[in-house]
Design a protein around this nucleic acid. Structure first.
Lengths: 257, 257
DNA sequence: CGCCTTGTTGATGACGCTCAAGATATGTGG
DNA sequence: CCACATATCTTGAGCGTCATCAACAAGGCG
């Protein structure tokens, strides 16, 4: 009921919001569940973390936040911009393992082996807040619920890999790109932002690497989605989602109850 | 030097062992490093675990060891046979995430979220030893080194996902199958077993699912490997590796120095 | 021994990769 | 601010790889 009042503020613009929200809620149990909500702090967890005095840090586009081998000094809460995490093996092959939105935590990988195993790079000029590990540990001792939250976040981190593996192993190019967009939309929605306008600051090559496709295929697939009136490209980096139902259908997610 | 005496026992048969071992050792830093050595207990860790009184458990072919939602009661040390772990989402799609050899630990996934997130199924009649979690916890308090070992194993668990993702996202069918075989060979070698005779008890469909291929493609690829004299098929389930160099080359692993 | 599951092999075509050219965006120095 | 240079993206053409469909062979089990 309170939400109706909110919507009334600019009802003309946001008339589609409820439907979108419904869709996301209804697809919560579906295939891409975890891929859609990685590293999201619940209201409770966020409040806990917000009680820690946080140092801010800016990272310019292409800048590195941490790299493999670095010890577990801190985890980072993305505040603005976007990061990608990527593995690089000794042959120099890269594998992007995730894109990270504002309000998502990165650096959790270091919790496993006491050091980071991937590069975290800013896709665009970005800003993070630094959670020093000793402070986090101290707070976890005080607030057991936070420790649980961290465990859960770590677990979701792995579930992301599982979902990505499933996506790339079972879906066609169309399904993979759709999965990416759907994931982005869900995550924006989770952060109470309009989920029908997606900003894709990363290069096509990055998307392609993430999804296991050629970069031309990503381009063509986005074009195909536009042809089908599922998305609308404003420009290179910005697309509108016009038919989330159809998008979900492409990856086999049943949004209708 | 002692190893020479061992080899002398049946020198004719095992003349190729040293080379194989060398290869594996030299490729230790390479692409599939972690995929090749998952859940391996070091001598030290194994000795620690062997001090726990272990209950044995037999699982017949197709039998289930644990399934998603089950709490963290125990982890399991495979003693004989083979297991596969697989995710199943609500749409019923399966994704096999690993095959597990004797001397490897399974069930670690439950350490993350306090409950299992996958099915562990015996591929053939198998036997495990059960490590009750309360005993493991008790021992970890006594022996800090064991706790470290567990952390490391958990980390390797995730690294497996990363390696598998990289394998399926960057390699062709030939490379993927080669990667699987190479991984199996490495793991046999790690357990001091002849690494040039591979037993593949799982179905082609399972291999295909794991690698993100059609089952027919797996069949054809094995045939192709035989045509190139890289492997020799004794029968459906057993193949000899005749040229590990070539196998490694297929996945871009440089085994020479 | 016969049924049924699993694996192999063949033919065909679609999907997506590669190579190449052109278009658009981004950045830089005058 | 514009012109130029560079990087990124798009679009096209051609082809290779692998999925699909189908038939057959082989292995496993009652």
């Amino acid at each position: 009921m309170p939400s109706i009042a909110q919507h009334a503020v600019n009802a003309g613009e946001v008339s589609s919001y409820p439907t979108l929200t419904d869709l996301l809620a209804r697809s919560r149990d579906a295939r891409l569940d975890a891929l859609c909500r990685p590293h999201v702090l619940g209201t409770q967890g966020r409040r806990q973390i917000e009680s820690i005095p946080l140092r801010a840090r800016s990272v310019k586009a292409g800048g590195m936040l941490f790299s493999p081998g670095e010890g577990l000094h801190a985890v980072y809460l993305v505040r603005a911009g976007m990061f990608k995490t990527q593995l690089v093996n000794l042959d120099g092959d890269r594998q992007i393992t995730g894109f990270h939105f504002p309000n998502e935590l990165i650096g959790l990988d270091a919790f496993r082996a006491r050091e980071h195993d991937c590069y975290a790079t800013a896709v665009v000029a970005s800003r993070v807040q630094v959670l020093p590990i000793h402070r986090l540990n101290a707070l976890m001792r005080q607030v057991p619920a936070l420790a649980e939250t961290m465990t859960k976040l770590l677990s979701e981190n792995v579930t992301e890999y599982e979902q990505l593996l499933m996506l790339t192993n079972t879906q066609s190019a169309l399904g993979r790109v759709a999965g990416l967009l759907f994931s982005f939309a869900c995550r924006l929605g989770d952060h109470n932002q309009p989920a029908d306008v997606l900003y894709l600051p990363m290069s096509r090559a990055s998307i392609a690497n993430y999804l296991g496709l050629a970069l031309e295929t990503v381009s063509r697939t986005l074009h195909e989605l536009e042809t089908r009136d599922i998305v609308l490209r404003r420009n290179n980096k910005t697309i509108d989602i016009r038919d989330l139902d159809a998008l979900a259908a492409l990856i086999g997610i049943t949004t209708t109850s």
